[in-house]
Design a protein around this nucleic acid. Structure first.
Lengths: 135, 135
DNA sequence: TGATTATCCTACCAACTAAGTAGACTTTTA
DNA sequence: TAAAAGTCTACTTAGTTGGTAGGATAATCA
């Protein structure tokens, strides 16, 4: 399941996508409109900024805004960043791979099935962007 | 991600599937062969029994065994039982549904996308059984 | 019938993660 | 230089995960 943090992240990102190219948006505005706890939202937006998805401006007239066009922000990447692995097992994860202990990946039915699940999910998530989440 | 508990459950179940119709298997045997902490495995097997997947026999010559043929034990159901929801959001879960707060499901792009992901995953998991996990 | 074998059950615990809060600091701009 | 706004460090609180301990209960067999 996606964490609350991830759900907040998507709400904030889609809000910013709607306001793309309309100047910086206050954290407090996003917090109010999307009903996300202010200080928690601060952390999330900062993380998204450090990952290169958002940009910010300090001082009066400042706020957060998308660094790239909404159609360039990949959904799978946002999930990996905020939520972690998409795969159901570490041994089939592309970005968070860890070897199974006491289990030979070459002869593991669970492993093989989870690769199929991973690919089916990625087939959707890798081909969607923030733009697809609007409306 | 699947919990360790879930991974242990699948290891134990596939082991029992290999021994289907060959009489009860000791918890301690599964524990040793599959390298699963004994007392933790006890809990897991008991849970699987209560869910109607396993059967047990007490006393000498006792142990655990599959209640049904491995080809009748659905993978999706095992995951739901031991790990929880398969969907990535409560608002798109079939068996663990919860309404979104502050979010209209009729107009939510995230919701729509997560239904696609859910269905893609279920399409695989619902059509596999323990038998498919062997070898 | 009583010892042995094995599951069943209740309770507990340590470590970690999720979710959120507090408060001071820094930078920008008017 | 004061106000506005993001940045940073640290904390709290609640819940989950991954176990462990020890006894109760039931079945078998000598």
């Amino acid at each position: 399941m996606l964490s609350k943090k991830s759900q907040y992240a998507f709400k904030a990102l889609t809000y910013l996508a709607e306001k793309y190219n309309k100047g910086p948006v206050l954290i407090s505005e996003i917090s109010k409109k999307k009903k996300i706890p202010l200080k928690f939202l601060e952390n999330i937006l900062l993380e998204l900024k450090k990952a290169g998805i958002l940009e910010s401006k300090k001082g009066k007239g400042g706020g957060y805004f998308l660094k790239k066009d909404p159609s360039k922000v990949n959904v799978a990447n946002v999930i990996r960043l905020v939520n972690g692995p998409i795969a159901m097992l570490p041994c089939v994860s592309l970005y968070f791979y860890e070897r199974c202990k006491n289990c030979d990946e070459k002869h593991c039915g669970l492993h093989d099935m989870m690769i199929l699940v991973r690919d089916a999910s990625l087939n959707i998530l890798e081909n969607r962007t923030l733009k697809d989440l609007l409306l």
